[in-house]
Design a protein around this nucleic acid. Structure first.
Lengths: 226, 226
DNA sequence: ACCTGAACACCGTTCAAGT
DNA sequence: ACCTGAACACCGTTCAAGT
């Protein structure tokens, strides 16, 4: 007869916030953002739609929680790197890859700002910005710029992945199409777009992303003495 | 009896793609993205929901068209500026302000990439990147970084505006709340977030945005000789 | 060619009723 | 305390029928 049972004892297969979020992530990964419906989720969890509302406030809450689970995992990964510069690159790449694996995370992050996932990223990157000797009064602006860039690329990438999924998968084929549209634009109105069409066709999203991070890091260093 | 009427003659108050898009923009501006429904639009245009489908493919098409109208307006504004650097700042600020006025544009841009609005921005900024003497093989990456940053900030700003609208309006009050949450975080886990809470409270979105642009411009210059 | 509006297939969310 | 599932109030989209 234990008065206070250790933790909450519960049937293995009963509902819980964690199980709901886990199932949501699976659904989101396999069928995209439009695949997450309370009915589909209820079916997967062998229950009714109403039951989910006992553990979760609403759909927005559910999406945020799923998103935060991914971001937390990513930002809690250990950083073996030596320099702050390398650490920032690793953190940024970690987010890039996470969103590449879970495109819906990009859309969610672009939609609800200033929430828990944001603080996680801000914190982790901010500590490295400090280590870079950026002056106190410039730290907010600096981290903010890095975060915005990361979110911008992520959102864009997520959207691209979504489109590639909607049409019949082939991403490089899709880029070929866009590049070919660009190269047929009016030369007088769109000289630049035409000229980079080839670079669009051959580009590597991940490498471009990192190049942008390096550009910002260069700017940071050049702005503060060294 | 003119055989070929000049242009398409039509009753002043009849439906047209332009009138539909115009009405959509008004609806989006006044009631946000969730305010744009085919039923609300039909009512505003004194017609039925089905009629709209004669001029517009579907809701996604409608949103893209409304978004492109705003971006086109913004990117076609004349640039009195002298240096490419100033021109880039002006173009970036133009987008920032446009999205500040029409927050839904941020969400749409974050969702469908590589479309017409994107090409407009790419072109306009790209021409200035050229003028900045960035080498040919670095132009795509450079413009891409700037665009991602602009989109990232825009999306974030749009989301903030949406949240401020959902709750009862007051934006600075909302920032106060977030800042106060941050400053109450665990000092061991979130030292950085705590330390910038004050800077968050006092910050100016527009100034921060421009500071980020300057950081990237600094990086660009520092990467290519001068 | 263009418009009408009822109808269809889906949502998120609520809630009385059960255990 | 937790779950069930029918019901409600909405969507986007279609389509036979009108002009």
């Amino acid at each position: 007869m234990v008065k206070k049972a250790r933790g909450v004892q519960r049937r293995e297969d009963s509902l819980s916030r964690e199980r709901i979020i886990e199932a949501s992530i699976e659904l989101l990964d396999s069928s995209g953002e439009s695949g997450l419906t309370f009915r589909a989720l209820a079916e997967r969890l062998a229950t009714g739609p109403g039951a989910i509302y006992w553990h979760v406030e609403n759909k927005s809450d559910l999406l945020s929680a799923a998103c935060d689970a991914i971001v937390a995992r990513t930002m809690d990964a250990p950083l073996p790197s030596a320099t702050p510069r390398e650490a920032i690159r690793a953190l940024a790449l970690g987010m890039f890859d996470a969103i590449d694996d879970h495109p819906w995370v990009g859309s969610v992050l672009a939609r609800d700002p200033a929430q828990l996932p944001m603080v996680r990223m801000l914190e982790r990157i901010g500590q490295q910005i400090r280590a870079l000797d950026v002056p106190d009064d410039a730290q907010w602006t600096t981290v903010s710029a890095l975060l915005s860039y990361i979110l911008g690329v992520s959102g864009q990438n997520a959207a691209n992945a979504q489109i590639a999924r909607e049409r019949d998968a082939d991403r490089s084929h899709f880029l070929d199409e866009v590049a070919s549209v660009w190269s047929q634009l009016d030369p007088d109105d769109y000289p630049f777009a035409r000229s980079v069409a080839k670079q669009l066709r051959d580009h590597d999203d991940r490498a471009d992303f990192l190049a942008g991070i390096d550009l910002i890091l260069l700017g940071i260093e050049s702005a503060h003495g060294r």
